[in-house]
Computed example of a mutant assay.
Amino acid sequence: MSATTTSTELADLLSTLATHRGFLRFTVQGLSDEQARRTPTASALSLGGLIKHVRAVEESWMRFAVGGAELMESVEADWENGFRMLEHETLAGLLADYEETAAKTERLLADLDLDTSHPLPVAPWFEPGASRSVRRVVLHIIAETAQHAGHADILRETIDGQKTMG
Rank of each mutant, 00 (worst) to 15 (best):
V57T: 08
R132E: 09
M72K: 00
T41W: 05
R107D: 03
A96S: 10
E89R: 10
R136Y: 12
T90P: 04
A123D: 07
A149N: 11
A130N: 08
L86N: 10
A123T: 01
D153K: 15
E59T: 01
A36S: 11
R156M: 09
D153G: 09
L112A: 02
T105S: 05
W61T: 00
H53T: 03
R21W: 11
R38E: 15
G22E: 15
L108I: 08
M62R: 00
A65L: 00
A65G: 02
A96T: 13
L50V: 14
E127W: 05
L50E: 05
L91H: 06
M72N: 00
K52V: 04
V137F: 03
F83P: 09
V137C: 06
R25V: 15
L50M: 07
D113H: 03
R136K: 14
A152K: 04
M72L: 02
T101M: 14
A143V: 14
R156G: 03
D111F: 01
H88R: 13
E59F: 01
D111W: 01
R63H: 01
L114E: 02
T116H: 07
I141W: 03
E80F: 05
D33H: 10
A77L: 10
L139W: 14
G93L: 13
T19V: 14
L17Y: 15
A69F: 00
E106R: 09
Q147I: 14
L108A: 06
S2L: 10
I159W: 11
E100L: 11
E9D: 10
G82V: 08
D97P: 06
G48P: 15
H118T: 06
L114H: 02
T16N: 12
L109V: 02
A18G: 06
A69C: 01
P124K: 09
V28M: 13
L95R: 13
P40I: 07
I141F: 04
K163G: 05
Q147A: 08
W125Q: 04
P40L: 04
A44C: 10
E157G: 05
Q35V: 12
D33T: 09
T19E: 15
D115Q: 15
E80V: 10
R84W: 14
R38H: 12
L139P: 08
A69L: 01
Q162K: 10
F23N: 11
